[in-house]
């Protein structure tokens, strides 16, 4: 009986003393944190992807609370809804950003770009890119080893084993930009998602002269400038032998798609055309379907 009392007393006293020490230590080393940081963090999607440019969602919340205005702060994953919530909590106004989505600017499937050699190193784009130009004749195109797939936190980009090209699942893509950074060939771009997800872009990054580009890949941009001439909105420019469609000027008229001789310009999610059905390449059908 005595033993139990002693044990209880000792443990009780140790507990009490520790509690007192802990209390004072907690007081002494208390760091004041704006309670709104927690609130903002709760409103964020908690993906911690770093797409906003800050280390994780808490870093972003911290920046939002400290900043005077919300200009330049945007959570690509949560989008406008989340930013409205954040703005509500902080009593600031959020900038509305146009939703964007990742597109892969390479159309060189196995059919279009014959393999000239066989890569036998680690299946890692960066390592292969540092070593040499790639398995095909095109030194600009996709290596197909899937660094983008590994970098994606949302399972939205996958390398298709048949075409050896990455495909973006636009419902899952949050346009956090991780794949853009991961691609050593700089093929991935964040573009405006567009009305009803309709977009047109040049699916090529080859800056070689036309005949060289054409030789290495059937669907390369040969900088013939037909698209530049036909575009009524001056949305297409050609620099370094490569056409580029500016998504802020493009009105999705689809004229450039028709004139492109190599089918390097891709249209997504449009209803099928009434005429010229037969001119569709297998790749476009696949992308549209």
């Amino acid at each position: 009986m005595n033993l139990i009392v002693i044990a209880l007393l000792t443990l009780g006293i140790i507990g009490a003393v520790s509690a007192i020490i802990l209390y004072f230590v907690a007081k002494k080393f208390h760091v004041y944190e704006d309670p709104r940081i927690d609130e903002v963090e709760a409103a964020l999607p908690a993906a911690n992807c770093g797409g906003c440019g800050f280390p994780g969602c808490r870093g972003f919340a911290n920046a939002c609370v400290k900043a005077d205005t919300l200009d330049g702060l945007f959570c690509p994953v949560g989008g406008n809804d989340t930013m409205q919530k954040v703005a509500g909590i902080l009593g600031k106004t959020a900038v509305t950003a146009v939703p964007t989505v990742a597109v892969v600017r390479c159309g060189g499937t196995c059919d279009h770009r014959p393999r000239m050699n066989e890569y036998d190193g680690v299946k890692h784009c960066f390592i292969a890119h540092n070593l040499y130009s790639g398995e095909t004749g095109c030194s600009w195109g996709c290596l197909g080893l899937g660094d983008c797939e590994v970098s994606c936190e949302f399972d939205a980009i996958k390398v298709n084993p048949v075409t050896k090209l990455p495909e973006v699942d636009e419902d899952k893509c949050t346009s956090c930009g991780a794949c853009v950074k991961a691609c050593p060939k700089l093929l991935i771009e964040l573009r405006k998602k567009g009305p009803k997800s309709r977009r047109i872009y040049v699916s090529c990054r080859n800056e070689d002269k036309g005949h060289i580009a054409k030789k290495s890949c059937d669907v390369s941009c040969i900088s013939c400038s037909k698209c530049e001439k036909v575009c009524p909105h001056e949305a297409i420019t050609i620099t370094n032998n490569l056409a580029f469609i500016h998504d802020d000027k493009c009105k999705l008229c689809r004229k450039c798609v028709e004139v492109c001789p190599t089918n390097a310009i891709v249209e997504l999610n449009f209803p099928p055309r009434k005429v010229k059905e037969e001119s569709m390449t297998p790749k476009e059908e696949q992308l549209v379907g």
């Binding site: 190193g121 680690v122 890692h124 960066f126 390592i127 540092n130």
Partner: peptide
Amino acid sequence: RPLLDYIRFGKT
């Protein structure tokens, strides 16, 4: 194991 491939990647 491709030790040097990865070390070269890290080194870069």
